[in-house]
Design a protein around this nucleic acid. Structure first.
Ligand SMILES: [Zn+2]
Length: 499
DNA sequence: CGAGTTTGACCCGCGC
DNA sequence: GCGCGGGTCAAACTCG
């Protein structure tokens, strides 16, 4: 009930056109107003606070709640801080000033501590999220496939990667596949070394050695399992998008049909991290940068990177969770609304119009399109063209569009988004709107923020408001961090396309 | 000098 | 079998 009301309110807000400005103002200049303006109890509080923001992701509710509490306290403190500071400067003597200063220091310290706590929390949340996600994935695929259920148990965080990553025929990718796939084999331990040691032989070995269950099952009656990819389209002048990770370029190629070269990067935050990304400018519009992520990080991420990471894994999960089911065939055969391609998420309410799987494409790919022209307040207008590169697809509109769409279709709330993690999760990630709103306001890493929000949705929908706030944070502070480039992302139509 | 980038060569899958 | 294209490797190079 209450939620619905709130949602409506937010939608209204979006449409009102204050969407952008509201937050700009409140965030930059009048922190204390934001709470008043938007929400009574949640998100606004955290927006200012932390720093680890991005880290908070869709996890389980308990964590979320905790986080929120902590966060808001921090925020309030901050408010006091600001207010008092203002008071000081205006009219008082040294003594007062000094007391104030010392008070401020104390507060600062406290804030610092809280930040640390938050950080901790975030880590925990992150873990539990991963764990949860993997379990859900496994459970899901197992219920449908009737696969071995035990795995479920021993597979921990990494299971995520497992679940998300490929089961495609070997040889197509190397280490990535190797690392992620091999877990079951005894060689597992060597995985890390694979990367460094002999790049080419391992490939071959894999081809032979990989006798893993998954692999063997699939060949015939199942579609080849592939590694999911998540690509993000955003406007950026920089050569790459600042997603908070450290990347090392390992190759560049001219792609067919595009004058702009495609650059290949791999994550260097951890030695054996399988994550890679491809960066390429759009042929038609060179201001648009398409970044395609593949794989999951096998190491802790800095706050600024978690958003994107969460997105990619969630999105990938979304793809693969569907593709890994045995039902998939049936799905394939059933004609689907949007395209010639099979409906991917047949079992999701709106999915037929959201995503489809193109059998022709080498990888299932989700595309987040953040390039749409300003003013997302207008009615949704999916733009199929840009997906051409990835083949026939359907779309997932962005947060706002999703919202408005939903509101059109069934009076509001409830993101209809892939309920992939189960029938439950009826809750609306309303925070998503906040995330987007705030992210846009703060920009630099809007991509990441939005992505995180989306991952919220995809991750099961029930979460917290923290995400948003956090994301903002990240944007703010980490924006200038390591990588240094920040896309200019107006707002967006978030589009998902699956190949 | 180490870390990151550049770039040509190479591998592999796929379609013809 | 051949050619093409995507993806990766690794020596050479650049930069701080
Ligand atoms: Zn990584």
């Amino acid at each position: 009930m209450e939620e619905q009301a709130q949602d409506r309110r937010e939608i209204a807000f979006l449409h009102s056109g204050e969407f952008l400005q509201g937050d700009f103002d409140s965030m930059d200049h009048q922190p204390n107003e934001s709470p008043v303006e938007h929400d009574h109890d949640h998100k606004p509080s955290i927006k200012e606070v932390d720093f680890f923001a991005a880290k908070i992701q869709p996890y389980d509710i308990d964590h979320v709640r905790t986080t929120r509490i902590v966060g808001s306290s921090g925020f309030n403190d901050r408010l006091n801080l600001v207010n008092s500071r203002l008071g000081i400067s205006s009219d008082d003597g040294d003594d007062k000033t000094k007391t104030q200063i010392s008070r401020l220091k104390l507060e600062l310290q406290r804030l610092h501590e809280e930040n640390l706590k938050l950080k901790h929390l975030v880590d925990e949340i992150s873990e539990s999220y991963n764990d949860l996600q993997s379990r859900v994935l496994l459970a899901r695929s197992q219920t449908q496939v009737e696969g071995p259920i035990k795995q479920h148990e021993d597979i921990i965080p990494q299971a995520v990667s497992q679940g998300l990553e490929d089961r495609r025929p070997m040889g197509m990718n190397n280490e990535v596949t190797a690392t992620t796939l091999k877990r079951r084999s005894p060689d597992d331990i060597n995985d890390r070394d694979l990367h460094q040691s002999s790049p080419k032989t391992p490939k071959l070995d894999q081809n032979k050695n990989t006798t893993s269950h998954e692999e063997q099952q699939s060949p015939h009656d199942q579609l080849p399992f592939r590694k999911a990819r998540v690509s993000v389209r955003a406007r950026s002048d920089a050569t790459t998008v600042n997603d908070g990770c450290q990347w090392r370029k390992y190759g560049q190629k001219m792609a067919k049909g595009n004058p702009c070269p495609r650059a290949y990067y791999r994550c260097t935050m951890a030695v054996g991290c399988p994550v890679r990304k491809q960066v390429q400018r759009c042929a038609e519009d060179t201001t648009i940068l398409t970044t395609t992520y593949e794989g999951n990080h096998n190491h802790p991420l800095p706050p600024s990177a978690t958003a994107m990471a969460a997105t990619t894994s969630a999105a990938a999960a979304m793809l693969l969770s569907g593709s890994t089911t045995s039902n998939f065939h049936q799905t394939l055969s059933s004609p689907s609304a949007t395209s010639s391609a099979p409906s991917f998420y047949h079992n999701f309410p709106y999915t037929s119009t959201i995503a489809t799987l193109s059998a022709s494409a080498p990888f299932p790919t989700i595309t987040l399109d953040l390039t749409n022209p300003p003013r997302l307040l207008q009615p949704p207008q999916p733009q199929p063209q840009f997906l051409s590169q990835y083949g026939p697809t359907a779309f997932l509109t962005n947060a706002n569009q999703i919202r408005s769409m939903n509101s059109n279709n069934n009076n509001n709330q409830q993101l209809s988004l892939p309920n992939m993690f189960g029938p439950q999760a009826p809750q609306v990630p309303r925070d998503m709107v906040d995330t987007v709103r705030a992210a846009i306001a703060m920009d630099p890493n809007f991509t990441a923020a939005l992505a995180a929000a989306i991952s919220n949705i995809m991750g099961g929908g029930n979460n917290n408001d923290n995400n948003n706030n956090n994301n903002n944070k990240v944007d703010e502070k980490s924006g200038g961090s390591s990588n240094g480039d920040s896309p200019q992302l107006p707002q967006s139509c978030t589009t998902f396309s699956t190949n």
